[in-house]
Design a protein around this nucleic acid. Structure first.
Lengths: 341, 341
DNA sequence: CTGAAAGCGCTTACAG
DNA sequence: CTGAAAGCGCTTACAG
């Protein structure tokens, strides 16, 4: 390995000077700089990340809290991780993965190691125990998702309001007047643990009021069986529903089956739009689902950059990023069928 | 932050002694150890990862080379990453993600930073430019997947031979005698860039020979359109095919559609088994596919541990791990239909 | 069994 | 504009 010392000797300067030209942190005469730079390229010098970290008290490493039980959002989680790692790399930072779920003690341990300058937290719940932990530790952090009251923190999240309204407008534009919303059950984590269903339902009801539409909201488990059951109940109780906006990936295939089981056809009789479903997931369904895909990569990218901004300037205004899902093609949505008398 | 110095002062010992009890690297008298330990817990000491790394010349960080263009294996890639991060954590290591594709120069840069003790490479191609790079750098590495001649390296990979044979036996056990294999086209990367199709075809042909069966191998692009086309061609040219083993996730929905388009039904007329498909992907298809799921988590876990073994003992025999895919339920396979005369 | 001291490869006031 | 030196928080021969 080539050290600064080696470069300094070759260029006939002190290692301080080498450091200054490497970091651009102080004026150096043109002649000296040139000598140092050619010495560096001749020797193939790359400065040691660890030593720099220790001396400067900035590791230039950020952590991504990676939930142990990743039952959720597998598809776009990968894109998110990818975006975060690229975002970090663009800013000359490294991204480490910390497999810690909601265990504040384990997180403490990691933090105390002093390896990272900041933390990215995925799968944020409305009341997330990691948030007070991170605040107490006094380390910069950015949430992916939002807590119930997000006003105090930096975050990057899906813009559920815009997404819901755009998706509903898309269906309404095709003549659909009675559009049902299908969400996931709160599940084991209890009432409204996660923000998305809560925010989506709110946005949906707002839209319904603004458009004079009757709201029909149904919830089901995150599995196909739930989706199938729900389809039958829903179409029996609300036979005038001509479109379903579903925000529950796992239940979607069941919903499609259930609709068929009632003798109806998608999209001829009922249109289905999957909100927050990744494109590759939507393509697997029968028929392929019109969907709005989460901007996983962009969220990860934005979150990493926002975190590094925060690390570099603790007084900076925390950045809050909201990005809508992107409408994608499929064969599950059609203009409403004119009812034959 | 609490430093070793603080602990040493409180326990009335030298920081060397603190280091010895923290690391268990030297005999320390019971009384001294007790004093040091209580001082540590009283102060809440956690040793600084960066300082330890620099002094010991072992960062206890490993890198995962994360392909920029992750078009492939999105579903199990996440599990793999998860397994690797847990495997590393269990051995007191950190995992960093390096978003570098097949760019040896970029990899060099990262390596020269001296941050990591070893490297995990995903999406290994049969002739992978990263391998000679890593060898030249003299850094321990483990491949996920195998090069054409894997005998020289440590790797963790799917056991395609066992998987193919098990999957074929499963179908044969249900009476299927003419089983087609569907693979992916080599694509832009050229002939047999990746190992899986090559290894699967070989295993399939072996099995066919051993069972006196006629081999039917078809290839198609990684998209639904290709799958649909292929189904029609395949069933026209080989009408006696009663089962399809498909190792091409993206083409699977198209294959199902294509089979239906010929007037046949899955699984009544044709059984379909998806080799190497993640369970959550298989559940989305219509009908849900009987599949064999890649052991992503276990591979990642094994690879990380194998790498750390290698780091800790460079002379250790490189560990080679092969794990088969695990058969999972679905509704796309049935006993062969007895032909009515 | 324990400690004083050198050293890991950098950064950064401080002085000149 | 440049350098000598202290220091980041540890580990690890070396001595006793």
């Amino acid at each position: 390995m080539v050290r600064m010392q080696d470069v300094a000797e070759r260029a006939n300067v002190s290692i301080a000077t080498v450091s200054f030209v490497v970091n651009g942190t102080k004026r150096v005469s043109e002649a000296t700089r040139a000598r140092v730079e050619s010495a560096m390229t001749e020797l193939g010098f790359t400065r040691n990340v660890l030593a720099r970290a220790l001396a400067s008290r900035r590791s230039r490493i950020i952590a991504l809290l990676f939930p142990e039980l990743d039952t959720r959002g597998n598809a776009s989680a990968m894109e998110f991780v990818h975006g975060a790692s690229v975002g970090a790399a663009e800013r000359d930072h490294h991204l480490v993965l910390w497999p810690v779920a909601n265990d504040p003690a384990a997180l403490r341990e990691y933090l105390d190691g002093g390896l990272v300058d900041g933390v990215l937290a995925m799968e944020v719940q409305l009341e997330d125990p990691r948030v007070p932990m991170l605040e107490a530790a006094g380390i910069p952090f950015v949430l992916i998702g939002r807590t119930a009251d997000p006003s105090a923190y930096a975050y990057a999240d899906i813009d559920f309001e815009t997404t819901a309204h755009e998706n509903l407008d898309h269906l309404a534009g095709l003549g659909h007047e009675r559009i049902a919303l299908v969400l996931e059950h709160p599940g084991a984590l209890g009432e409204s643990a996660y923000g998305p269903p809560v925010r989506l339902e709110r946005a949906y009801r707002e839209w319904a009021v603004a458009h004079g539409a009757t709201a029909v909201v149904a919830m089901t488990a995150r599995d196909p069986a739930g989706g199938a059951e729900l389809a039958e109940d829903l179409l029996r109780d609300h036979p005038d529903v001509t479109a379903v906006l579903i925000a529950n990936d796992e239940a979607a295939p069941g919903l499609l089956r259930g609709i068929r089981a009632t003798g109806r056809s998608v999209p001829r009789d009922v249109s289905v739009l999957a909100l927050g479903m990744a494109s590759r997931t939507a393509a697997l369904c029968e028929p392929p689902l019109v969907h709005s895909a989460p901007p996983g990569y962009d969220l990860g990218h934005a979150a990493a950059r926002a975190l590094i901004d925060l690390v570099e300037d603790a007084d900076a205004e925390p950045i809050r990023t909201l990005l809508p899902c992107v409408l994608g093609e499929g064969a599950s949505v059609a203009p409403v069928r004119t009812t034959l008398p």
